[in-house]
Design a protein around this nucleic acid. Sequence first.
DNA 1: CAATTAATCAATCAATTCATTGAATGACTG
DNA 2: CAGTCATTCAATGAATTGATTGATTAATTG
Lengths: 225, 225
Amino acid sequence: MKNADVHHPIFDEIADLARTLGHAHRLVLLRHIADGELAVEQLTQLSGIALANTSQHLQQLKRAGLVQTRRDGKRVLYRLADGPIENVLGALRSLANHRREQIRELIDDTVSRPDRLESISREELVRRMRNDEIVLLDVRPQEEYAAGHLPGAINIPVGELEERLAELPREKVIVAYCRGVRCVLSADALAILRARGRASRRFEGGFPEWLNSSLDADGMNYESG
Amino acid sequence: MKNADVHHPIFDEIADLARTLGHAHRLVLLRHIADGELAVEQLTQLSGIALANTSQHLQQLKRAGLVQTRRDGKRVLYRLADGPIENVLGALRSLANHRREQIRELIDDTVSRPDRLESISREELVRRMRNDEIVLLDVRPQEEYAAGHLPGAINIPVGELEERLAELPREKVIVAYCRGVRCVLSADALAILRARGRASRRFEGGFPEWLNSSLDADGMNYESG
DNA sequence: CAATTAATCAATCAATTCATTGAATGACTG
DNA sequence: CAGTCATTCAATGAATTGATTGATTAATTG
C-alpha cells in the first residue's frame, strides 16, 4: 500500500494551524479571548503586547480560523471561533506539562523561585549519572575547576557558555553547579541554557559540599588535579 | 497589577511544541512514527523527504520531546515519546477538519470566488491520477457525461450523490468536476462529500476546459461516447 | 583496520516570520 | 464635516527557519 495520504493537503492545513499556535503572544491572546469577547486595546493591556503587534497576531489567529470578530462602534471585538479549539489548547498544554514533568519531575503552574524548582538533589544526581541521563556542567572559572571538580563534569565558565554551547550534548539534561547554595553562577548558566532550549537543572550543592559528603559508598569518587 | 500569568514560561513551551508541529513534513514523520518504531531511512522512503532533511526534522521532533530514539546497530530507530502526543495530533486534526467544513460553507455562499484551497490544478490532477491516488467524479447529468467526460471519471449526478456514495472508493481522494469555473454542481458535491467525511477536492476546470487543453502530451486522452 | 552503511553535522542561501514605525481606514462625536 | 479614537495596513530590517550540499561521526563488515 502506498502512502497517498502523505501528500494529503490536510497535513498542510494542520501544520498551518499548529504554526499559528506556535507563538507565545498568540497563545496569550487566545487565552484571554477564551475568557470572553475582548477588544484589541483591552488585549494589548492584558498582554503587554504593542498595539500594532497585537493586531497583527490577532489577524493571524483570524486567518487561521481560530477567532472571529465583530464590530461594536469603533472597537473590534474578538471572540473564539467555534470548533474544538480549546481541546487543542488543552491537549497542547497537558503535553507541555507532561514534558515539564519529565524534565524536572514536577508539574507547576505557578511562578516561584526557579532556583528551588529546578534544583536536583544529590541522590537524584548520583542515580541519573549512573543511568547516563545527565551531563554535569561546572560553570566556575577554569582555575577552580582545575583544583578539583565533580566526576565527569565538563568545565565551561559561565562567561563562555554562549559560545561553547555546542560542547554540551543535546540529548542529555544538563546539570549545572558552581560553588554552593549561595553561588549564582549556576543560576545564570540555567538562564542561558533554557534560553537556548536546553533541558537543564541546577545542582544545589556545589563542589565544596560534594567533598564533604561521603558519596564514595555510592561508587563515585571525585577527581582532582 | 499586572498579569503575571502572561509571562509564564509555559506559554513559550507550548508555543515551542506547537511550532514544532507546524510543518507538514514533521507531521508526516510523526504519523509514520506513531505506527511503530522506524529508522531514518525508512522514514525518508515513506515520506519522500530527503535524507538529511528528514534527519533534521526528526531532531526537531526530538528536541521538542515528541519522539525518542534508540540505536540498533547502525540504525537509529525513532519512536513516539510517551505523553499525550496523539491527543494533540487528534485535536489538531479535528480542528482542521472543522475548519475545512467552515471554509466549504463559506465557498458555497460566495460562488463568485472559486475556492483556491480545495481546488486542484490540472497538473496535480494528471500527476495524481497517474499515481492512482485520486478518483475523478463527474457530477453532471448523465446525458452530458455520455457526450464526453474526463478519462476514468465516474458519473454520479449531484442529485444522486447521497444515495450512491458507496460507489466511491473510501481510501482515495475524490476530485469532483462539472462544467467549468462557474458551475456550482461540483461545489455542491463537495459539500455532500465533506459532510460524509470523504476527502474531496474540486477540479477547477470543467470538462470543456479539459478538452481545450492539450494534455495528450501527458499521455492522457479523454474518452468520449 | 580500511570499506561500507546509517545518520548527523556544518555551512550556505532562499524564504519566512516578527517587531516596529508611521500612514491610512472606519466609525463615532461634537 | 473636521476631529478623534480604535484598528488595520504597509514597509522596513533583524532574526529565524527550511532545503540542500558536502563533510563527519558511529557502528558494522570484510
